[in-house]
Every structure is written in structure tokens, then in C-alpha cells.
């Protein structure tokens, strides 16, 4: 019973953080800040939701599989964000601070 309540709490918090991330995706002004918003959903929301699901299992093989999903995601999502930011930087996208500085064209 306690486990189920805890799991519900985790799942709801995870859903909330997912929404936070996607709202940030709409709200933030430039590309690099949007990556930060997306990384909220990638890290904390994934952790919370997977742990919420683990608390609903009988802690056997299913829980181990969930843990594997979590590890995969925690390994791959920063790599993906880094690759994205790096190729955006090499593709010539400027950060907000650089856009506000003298240069006025570029970056929509």
C-alpha cells in the first residue's frame, strides 16, 4: 500500500516534469536554452517514471529490465544532447548572449 502510494507520487511527479520540459521547449527564446528544457524531461522525468514503475513490480526480472532501460537512457540522452548542441554550434547557430551582442543578423 505504501509502495503503491509512493509509486503514484513518483509517476505524477514524473508527468509534471515531462510537462515542464515540453513547456520550456515552447517558451524558451533560443535553441541552446531549449536543449536545457528538453534535458529536464530526459533526466529527472525518466528517473521518476521508471522508479515509479519499479515500485509496482515484484522486484524480479521485470524490475531489472526497467533498470536497464533507465541505464540506457541515462547513458544515451546526454550523448544525444551533446551531439545535437555540437552540430548546432558547428552549423553556425549562435547563443542568446552572442545574438544580443553587436552582431544583429543570423538566427531568425
Amino acid at each position: 500500500m505504501i509502495l503503491e502510494t509512493l509509486s503514484t507520487l513518483f509517476l505524477v511527479l514524473g508527468a509534471f516534469f515531462s510537462f515542464t520540459g515540453v513547456i520550456g521547449l515552447f517558451k524558451f527564446p533560443d535553441f541552446f536554452t531549449r536543449v536545457h528544457a528538453a534535458s529536464v524531461t530526459d533526466s529527472i522525468a525518466t528517473i521518476l517514471i521508471i522508479f515509479g514503475l519499479i515500485l509496482r513490480t515484484d522486484f524480479g526480472l521485470v524490475a531489472v529490465k526497467l533498470l536497464f532501460i533507465l541505464i540506457f537512457m541515462l547513458l544515451t540522452s546526454p550523448t544525444a544532447s551533446h551531439a545535437l548542441a555540437k552540430s548546432a554550434r558547428h552549423g553556425g547557430l549562435l547563443t542568446l548572449a552572442e545574438t544580443r551582442a553587436p552582431k544583429k543578423e543570423d538566427n531568425d
Partner: peptide
Amino acid sequence: TVYDRILGVNMFGTKTALFIAVMGF
């Protein structure tokens, strides 16, 4: 920009994996 698109698609993909897991339960 194309990078924004990829960012959105990446988020869509990770959420899909989570959604499949929740759906299984």
C-alpha cells in the same frame, strides 16, 4: 531550424520508449 526539429523528435522518441513501458504495465 533543423536542430529544433531534431530536438523535438528526440524528445518524442524518448517519451515513446517510456510510454511503451507504462503501457505494458
